[in-house]
């Protein structure tokens, strides 16, 4: 079992390089006015790619016991459940928005 993975220097540096490039990209896309809701989708998509890169290569999930990945994804799943079902309420209230 290769859980004592030692990353190569080139992996670490290229991942960091990719992260910096994506950071530039996510700022750059705001210079073009992408219409709602695609601007949010693009921004979150880039963030997910970045987070995945950090998790896989900096946090070694790529080489690690698969179960750790499952555990980590589980947290995201339950967060999605929380947001999803709560939105089922907040987006569909008859009275509309709360009045200040």
């Amino acid at each position: 079992m290769s859980t004592h993975h030692i990353s190569t220097l080139s992996t670490l540096l290229s991942v960091a390089g990719a992260l910096l490039a994506l950071t530039f990209l996510t700022v750059a896309v705001t210079w073009f006015n992408i219409p709602e809701p695609f601007n949010v989708i693009v921004a979150i998509a880039i963030a997910i790619v970045k987070a995945a890169a950090v998790a896989m290569f900096f946090m070694n999930l790529y080489w690690d016991d698969r179960f750790n990945t499952i555990v980590f994804l589980l947290s995201i799943l339950f967060l999605v459940i929380f947001v999803g079902i709560t939105l089922l309420d907040t987006l569909f209230r008859d009275a509309g928005l709360p009045v200040y």
Partner: peptide, 16 residues
Amino acid sequence: HLVDIIWIFLFPLLYL
């Protein structure tokens, strides 16, 4: 790294 990941999401959500 987790602290980093959280910031990766905070940045576009709050600033951009």
